[in-house]
Design a protein around this nucleic acid. Structure first.
Lengths: 297, 297
DNA sequence: TATCAATTTCAGAAGAATTGAAGTGAGCGC
DNA sequence: GCGCTCACTTCAATTCTTCTGAAATTGATA
């Protein structure tokens, strides 16, 4: 069986024109190189050099030099691609994230993640928690970032951080003058605008209030606009409102249980690609810190 | 260093879905295959299979299967090209030959030579001895077939056959009634047409006759036409006149030294390509027999 | 023709791959 | 839930391959 290593030795000899230099170049003795060449000639079935001074090739030698060079080049390139992929320097990464994280947390995270991986291709989908789970489950996204839910079936949840809900209201609202965390009871009689995130709050008092609400808005920008326009108040995770909005105030809630847990969503059965695994580790290490900083904790 | 052989084992395992079958396929034990795989994973830097049941690949495994298959395919193809070339099943062969051999001898020779080498590309140049030597010397032709000459410099001559000269005259010429080989003295007073081949005859008697000749024709067809038209007689090698011409007769010459030696012309310093070497051996073995048959010896 | 350097040859040494047996662990039927 | 089975892995011994260093050979050069 002809080995690629033998071709490598042959090409080196053909290029240096003598065995001694080639032997130095490949880190063997001249006798080892000589034997390799002899064996190669036997296996191919013809002489590669015109004389045993290795400075001129036969027609067969020329052909083998061309083909051999190409094989070596192509093999080495393949191996380097394999290694780069294994070490997550290349590959593609599809992330599905809830908007609050996509907007407030992922930009610096991705920026730093890609700094050492300039060749990695990233796709980011900005969708709600339920769809995040669906995209991960179907394999469209490699990894998801979403609120916790009863971990059903194929996807697994790993918590990243907790995010307390706050009350969002016009900054001239009566509640702004309370100077203490808002209790659910403070909201009796107020008009509440529901949204996708706040529906996750389990507190019975909140559920009662929420049941009376007539408006539900899923898009955060629209929601804030509604509040600003004086249509009512709403409850949102802190991170969602991280960027201060003109004319609206974010008030702390007294109920410490009113918080969502945000974490990574991954398929349980399918192992992540190297890039996804690297991103997972990076996210677990870096996201909590970024969130803490953003929320001013 | 990653070896192509390791990729070969990996691809086999990935394709059979388990180690035992793959081990049978590559002719190793399962433990050898397992160790090869482990080593490959270490060198690449990541796992290739999802579990230690080898029936599902990781993303890295899939990449390596694709790249590995391609590398193996390409390497094997290169090796087979090298072998085919070494065994002269492929390659190109450029032959320069004097017309008499090109016309009368080479067709059946080449036909049989190529029968077992259908992929070999052949070029045939039909030119005079001096040009044959020049083409071989310059490397344009791999091998030449020409009359002998003082073997000068870079080319070497290997005799193939001898070819006696004959006298060519109109079939109603007086000489046709001699009923014995023609002597040089029989030609006194006759009009002789010189040609490229007959100029090689060394006999002093002939040289005298030839010196008196006023016409020289190099092309055989024209030469025969001249003879047929009654312009004179000429001296040509038997093989050149092998095909009988209407209205002209080819008479034996008494002078046994009036013959040319035809042989192979090759470069002395440059080794022949495998196809050229194969043709050389074939020609040395087959051409004398064909010539003997053609000349009815 | 003698000399010198490059190459080849050879036997032993070093290193790598392979084997067979024992061990591990996941999946499956009882 | 227990133990069986099958597939894979691990380990130490063995075998096979490749390498080395010394000596012999070869070819070029003076």
């Amino acid at each position: 069986m002809i080995k690629l290593e033998a071709l490598r030795v042959f090409v080196t000899v053909a290029e240096s024109g003598n065995i001694k230099d080639a032997a130095d170049a490949v880190g063997r003795t001249a006798s080892a190189v000589s034997m390799t060449l002899k064996q190669l000639e036997d296996e191919i079935g013809g002489p590669l050099f015109q004389t045993d001074r290795k400075n001129s090739l036969t027609a067969l030698g020329n052909l083998m030099l061309d083909l051999g060079r190409e094989q070596i080049r192509s093999f080495d390139k393949s191996v380097s691609i394999m290694r780069a992929f294994a070490h997550s320097r290349i590959g593609s990464l599809s992330i599905a994230s809830v908007p609050s994280v996509a907007t407030n947390v992922l930009p610096p995270i991705l920026q730093r993640f890609l700094q050492t991986r300039p060749q990695v291709q990233v796709e980011l989908f900005d969708i709600d928690s339920a769809q995040v789970r669906r995209m991960v489950e179907s394999g469209v996204a490699d990894i998801g970032i979403a609120g916790e839910s009863r971990t059903g079936g194929a996807v697994e949840f790993t918590p990243l951080f907790s995010d307390r809900f706050k009350l969002l209201c016009k900054d001239d609202h009566d509640l702004c003058r309370l100077e203490r965390p808002v209790k659910w009871s403070d909201l009796n009689g107020a008009t509440l605008i529901r949204n996708g995130a706040s529906d996750r709050i389990e507190a019975a008092d909140y559920k009662q209030l929420s049941a009376l609400s007539l408006i539900t808005v899923y898009n955060v920008t629209s929601l804030v606009a509604m509040v600003k326009a004086g249509l009512g108040l709403t409850i949102l995770p802190s991170l969602t409102m991280h960027d201060a909005h003109e004319g609206v105030a974010a008030l702390d809630l007294a109920d410490a249980t009113a918080s969502r847990r945000v974490g990574l969503v991954e398929r349980r059965d399918v192992p992540p690609s190297p890039v996804a695994a690297a991103f997972r580790a990076f996210a677990l290490k870096e996201i909590p810190a970024i969130v803490a900083e953003r929320l001013g904790t």
